[in-house]
Nucleic acid binder design. Structure first.
Lengths: 91, 91
DNA sequence: CAAATACATCGAAATATTTAAATGTATCAA
DNA sequence: TTGATACATTTAAATATTTCGATGTATTTG
């Protein structure tokens, strides 16, 4: 995995609200809508939208548009790639 | 692993210079001195010192004082703990 | 088509991070 | 003990991130 990509994923993971969103997605078996996340995270809607975009840009989550809602799905694959890189750093 | 700790490690990993330092430590089998890192990283000495402190505070590296030099060692254990947390997020 | 809903984008303020020059501290060597 | 070396800390400037109100854009519903 490219260092630039590792940096981007790390940045996405470096915020308590975004970590909470990922935990929520895990708990709810990855299927959550933006409004559900808005209900739980104690931030204004544009802030949540911003965080979801960062997670999405890092490919940690995948946004699936369903009518006027957006469903968010955890991207297991990129987590594997990221952890593989980190493991490869070990001596 | 605590979310606060995950956040701190993620922050430490979210910088190109710090990632490069970790790669250097891996390449050199974890045994490097501050001055060696200064030679390779294109930053002033206080900046490198600052980055090493962040990696050290996140426990990604361990600083071992040897006389007037400091040797840096990769902390495999914390990498394992961090990747375990990330893996546990998967659905 | 008009109103409502769900989410995104813009703009701006508050806060955090990165960087380096200047300086400080500890250790070694002569 | 004096000068040099290795690294840390302080201070301050530049830059990036976080946050939210206001507003914009689709989509659905009546």
């Amino acid at each position: 995995m490219e260092l630039k990509k590792v940096e981007k994923i790390s940045k996405a993971l470096a915020d308590p609200n975004r970590l909470q969103i990922l935990k929520l997605l895990h708990k709810n078996k990855s299927c959550m809508y933006c409004s559900d996340i808005n209900d739980v995270i104690d931030l204004a809607q544009p802030s949540v939208s911003h965080h979801l975009k960062q997670l999405s840009d890092a490919e940690l989550i995948i946004a699936e548009k369903e009518g006027r809602e957006v469903k968010y799905v955890l991207n297991n694959k990129i987590i594997d790639q990221y952890t593989s890189f980190l493991t490869s750093l070990k001596v």
